[in-house]
Write a protein that binds this DNA or RNA. Structure first.
Lengths: 335, 335
DNA sequence: TGGTCAAGTGCAAACGTTTGCACAGTTGTT
DNA sequence: AACAACTGTGCAAACGTTTGCACTTGACCA
């Protein structure tokens, strides 16, 4: 029952330095009750001995693990990959680490949710299109702060989202202002708060202009679904064919655009296409996609701020933050 | 200095059950020295009290954290996202968890590598196009098993790779057999063992047919680089223009194809294009890319087997496993 | 000279779980 | 009746770090 390599510990350093372990701990943590001379002497010794603190032991006594649990959405949407990388970059700079609780589709298994408790994570960041209700339950029951990114919290927890309604509205206005009059939406049949808000706002804005949605396709939240929708749209001709399509996510917009291209439908002259999310791939010349770019960096900053505040003060009430996205007007919408 | 929610512990269960904590531990772990009756009684009590073991405390005494460290490559290549999801799915089923050490480009910071020791990870899985030499050093020095996936280990550690040479060779043969005679390669200037092997094998096979590489472009390992290479290729005309291009990764092949499409170069009639990796996106009708599909699931299974063996037996020698990829012949190579 | 205060450090228990060794009770055998 | 073996469980220290409380020493003041 020993550490694999008999590494330096507080106790071994204390023996070498001729002081108590508590003195070593305090010296290394910069406690000014320990004299400057002693602090410097112990810091030098720790450096020389290659001491690395054991955070697991520290957690046992301090109650803080320095871990956040992470629940990540499916690989079929590159948005989650972008989110992972940005979140990981920020968590590192905060001096925290991510413990992956779950990644990908499907509900979170019971024992997976338990990992949050087993590893005593300080908080949990969820960005998953699937409702992680079991995770929310475990967090609530055990006073673990939880923040959802790009999802509205239906139960316990905070959330940071893009202002989906404002985005949907802005896109509708852009299309109306450029003269489009017949609209389609590529959405997702499985419940998604983000999709619902984006579509509702889009439709509401059309209604204000006395117009309505002519077609609605289930793009199933992935590229292939957008592609299928594009094939269906390409079959329409004449007055039936919409002159503008809103794909509720960039990944579906990309599928849609590829299908239209292969079927010879000219974008934007025959049909304008807009998306949502602001994936880097949306900027590619082949797509040139007009989209709402989610303020991902800021969303994640705010998410970590919510977590940090609730680690410090567990009784803070739940909070939802909505941040406005940025309309990126590119070639796919004309104008 | 208390647990956030005063959860059940071994000690609290032992008091309720009227037995010693060691009895509770042994009962919950199925030790048959504890009577069946006692084991059942304690299991029921644990269930009733909502007991969840604290793995951090367990690690302190057992020396096993149930954590693997993960170092992930950049988000600009979706291959790494695929790898993350598959690896996470497998690690869950093994009863382990991933601690994210690093994700994305750039060298791993000193304190980031130290996290491996701080959290007492049982092993480390690296899949990063950047040499993680500091991580390898920390692992070697502290007897932490390390396995690289899709990278040849240059220092301490094991590796599981796709047989890049066989793949490069197979692609060369395919192009030769379909009558192609003037070749280009889109590679990466920064050192990559995978790219080097793929290109070397491709060029060697051409040489065996008395042919050589006509053009070589630095695609910088990302979509945009492949796209730039495509623009350059499209500028060539007549006898100068290659009739076949090997992009050393699918992500570059996708950029290449998009550029060729926008410049009106017909694939595969004017120019055959092949890639490597087997990204799901390669199968999209818009790309229809002929590629070598890396056996990702098996590679990760083998990687975990290497880790598990070395957790159990730390002195096992380093090992490199090379697994043959699968040639997927699609429209982009003709025939 | 004695009392008080401040500075600097130590003691020891705790965090939650594990495990080597020990002990008690029961049963079987001589 | 005594002893040995077996079964079932307990003791207590340990893993590495933290921290509330305590102690010692020196300086200062009345």
């Amino acid at each position: 029952m020993s550490s694999p390599s008999r590494r330096s510990t507080i106790v071994t350093l204390s023996k070498l330095a001729g002081v108590a372990p508590s003195t070593v701990t305090r010296a290394l943590r910069g406690d000014t009750r320990i004299s400057e001379k002693t602090r410097q002497r112990i810091a030098a010794l720790a450096q020389e001995q290659g001491y690395t603190p054991n955070v697991l032991a520290r957690t046992l006594s301090s109650g803080r693990s320095g871990l956040y649990g992470l629940i990540l959405g499916p690989s079929s949407n590159p948005f989650y990959s972008e989110l992972l990388h940005e979140a990981t970059r920020q968590v590192e700079s905060l001096g925290y680490r991510f413990l992956i609780i779950h990644a990908g589709s499907g509900p979170v298994e019971e024992r997976t949710a338990e990992a949050l408790l087993q590893y005593q994570v300080d908080g949990c960041l969820v960005s998953s299109a699937i409702q992680s209700s079991r995770v929310a339950e475990v967090c609530e029951k055990n006073a673990v702060p939880l923040v959802m990114v790009n999802r509205v919290a239906l139960q316990h927890g905070c959330a940071v989202t893009c202002d989906n309604r404002a985005g949907g509205r802005d896109l509708a206005r852009l299309l109306l202002e450029s003269g489009r009059r017949k609209f389609a939406v590529v959405t997702t049949s499985s419940y998604s708060s983000t999709a619902q808000e984006r579509e509702d706002a889009f439709v509401d804005e059309l209604a204000r202009a006395g117009l309505s949605l002519a077609h609605r396709y289930d793009g199933k939240s992935h590229y292939e679904g957008g592609y299928e929708a594009g094939l269906e749209l390409a079959k329409l001709s004449g007055a039936q064919r919409p002159d503008a399509v809103f794909a509720l996510s960039d990944i579906m917009a990309m599928g849609l655009l590829d299908a239209l291209r292969l079927k010879g439908v000219a974008v934007p002259s025959d049909m304008a296409v807009v998306g949502f999310d602001g994936l880097p791939a949306a900027a590619r010349p082949i797509y040139d996609l007009t989209t709402i770019e989610q303020p991902l960096t800021t969303m994640i900053e705010r998410a970590f701020a919510l977590l940090a505040n609730r680690v410090a003060t567990p009784s803070l009430p739940d909070e939802t933050i909505s941040l406005k996205g940025r309309l990126l007007i590119r070639g796919s919408s004309g104008g």
